[in-house]
C-alpha cells in the first residue's frame, strides 16, 4: 500500500478556487500531482451525479472547492453547494464509503497557499484511507 497513489477529482469554481489553484501554480507551490481539476462556473454547478459518477469510475476521493461563504460570484451558489454536499456525504456514507473521501473547502482567488494545503491534506487523508472500495468493473 506504500506506493498507493490516489486519483482525486477536484471541482473548482471558476471565480475563486480555480484562480486560487492558478495562483498556487504561479507561486510555484509544491503539491502532489494526484488531483485532476475540473473547472465549473460555480460550486453549485457541481451536480451530485458528477461526484457519484467520479466515485463509480474509481476516483479515490473528490474535492469540491468554491468561494468562501458570502463571497459567491452568484451570491448564493456556495450555500446551495454545501447543503447538497452535506446530503451527498450522508448518501455516500450509506453506500459504505468513508465520508472523508468527499471534501468541500472554500478557497478564494488569492489563497494559493490554502489551495496547496487543502490538496496536501486531502491526499494524505486518502492515502491513509487506501484505495476506493469500488471494485473494478469486471
Amino acid at each position: 500500500m506504500a506506493d498507493f497513489e490516489p486519483k482525486i477529482v477536484a471541482f473548482c469554481c471558476n471565480w475563486c478556487s480555480y484562480a486560487g489553484a492558478d495562483g498556487a501554480g504561479v507561486a510555484r507551490l509544491q503539491m502532489p500531482t494526484n488531483f485532476r481539476i475540473i473547472r465549473t462556473m460555480c460550486s453549485a454547478r457541481v451536480d451530485p451525479e458528477w461526484v457519484l459518477r467520479a466515485f463509480s469510475k474509481g476516483a479515490d476521493g473528490v474535492m469540491i472547492l468554491g468561494c468562501h461563504p458570502g463571497d459567491c460570484h452568484y451570491i448564493g451558489g456556495n450555500y446551495r453547494a454545501r447543503r447538497r454536499i452535506a446530503l451527498l456525504r450522508m448518501v455516500i456514507e450509506q453506500y459504505g464509503f468513508d465520508p472523508k473521501r468527499l471534501k468541500l473547502e472554500w478557497v478564494s482567488a488569492s489563497e494559493g497557499e490554502k489551495f496547496q494545503k487543502t490538496v496536501v491534506d486531502f491526499v494524505d487523508t486518502i492515502k491513509a484511507l487506501g484505495p476506493t472500495p469500488i471494485k473494478k468493473e469486471e
Binding site: 457519484l52 459518477r53 463509480s56 453506500y95 459504505g96 464509503f97 472500495p133 469500488i134 471494485k135
Partner: peptide
C-alpha cells in the same frame, strides 16, 4: 451509478 453497498 453506484449500484450496491461498498466496504472500505
Amino acid at each position: 451509478l453506484i449500484k450496491a453497498k461498498v466496504t472500505e
